[in-house]
């Protein structure tokens, strides 16, 4: 689980930094799953990989949220796009 968390964390950082916002939402979801796996791994078997996975996942999630969430007028945004 620690390795899976690390992989997902690195992936979310890559998606956050290098995809220029196109799939930021996917990076955030991947990062959160990484956080869950990292925390479970730390709980069951605390080691460096689990900690690294947790930290990478948190950084990746925050980067994705920071760069790419746009509030397109909670409900009305789609209408603007349609127009």
């Amino acid at each position: 689980m620690g390795i899976a968390s690390l992989v997902l964390g690195i992936l979310s950082i890559i998606l956050g930094v290098f995809t220029a916002g196109t799939i930021g939402w996917l990076g955030a979801i991947i990062g959160i799953i990484g956080i869950i796996l990292g925390a479970i791994a730390r709980k069951n078997n605390p080691n460096g990989i689990a900690m690294a996975g947790l930290v990478c996942s948190i950084i990746g999630t925050i980067l994705c949220l920071l760069f790419y969430i746009a509030c397109v007028a909670c409900v009305g945004g789609l209408a603007v796009m349609a127009q």
């Binding site: 969430i69 007028a73 789609l78 796009m81």
Partner: peptide, 22 residues
């Protein structure tokens, strides 16, 4: 306001996912 015929278009799908939350 969702154009269902454009759902297979990645950029439209992505704009929907970036749209907003309730």
């Amino acid at each position: 306001y969702i154009i269902f015929t454009k759902l297979n278009d990645w950029s439209y799908m992505n704009s929907l996912m970036n749209g907003g939350f309730v």
